[in-house]
Simulated assay, not measured.
Amino acid sequence: MLVCRFADAARYAAVTGRELVDNLANELAASRRALAGIRSDSAAWKILPILTERTGFSRNRVWEQREILGVLDAYAAQIRRAS
């Protein structure tokens, strides 16, 4: 019984993990497309994926990439539903 539950959990983790990696790769590709046409040596490529400042402060800023966070939030919700 325990071995079967462990095997089921391992299969679930493998499948959902692969989906997570695919979704993150898709978002990274979308960020690259958003920077299409920008010189390859431009500083904009150093901030790939595109980050957004969230706090509005001039110090102690928090930067985020909303699309990546959306993928991670969806993955977390999927795992919560499954458990």
Rank of each mutant, 00 (worst) to 15 (best):
L35T: 04
F6S: 05
A77N: 06
R59K: 13
A34P: 00
A74S: 11
N26G: 11
Q65E: 08
S83V: 15
V21Q: 01
A34N: 15
G70I: 01
G56Q: 03
M1K: 14
I38E: 01
R11C: 08
F57N: 15
R18I: 05
D8E: 11
A29C: 07
A77R: 08
G37W: 01
D41E: 14
D22C: 09
Y12Q: 09
E27F: 00
I50C: 02
E67I: 04
A82W: 02
L20S: 00
Y75V: 06
Y12R: 09
V15I: 12
L69A: 12
D41G: 05
R66L: 14
G56R: 04
L2Y: 13
R61L: 06
L48W: 03
A44F: 05
E53Y: 05
A44G: 04
N26I: 08
A29W: 05
E64M: 09
E19N: 08
F57A: 15
C4H: 13
R61P: 07
R61A: 11
L35E: 03
E27N: 06
A74F: 01
F57D: 15
F6N: 06
D73Q: 15
A76G: 05
R54L: 11
R33K: 12
F6H: 08
M1A: 15
E19G: 07
L2G: 14
N26R: 15
N23D: 14
A74V: 02
F57K: 15
G17S: 02
R11I: 09
S58D: 14
R61M: 13
A74G: 06
D22F: 04
S40V: 10
V21S: 04
L24C: 06
A30F: 02
Q65R: 07
R11W: 08
L20W: 04
A9S: 09
R33E: 15
P49S: 02
F57R: 15
V62R: 10
L72H: 00
N23G: 07
S83D: 10
L69I: 10
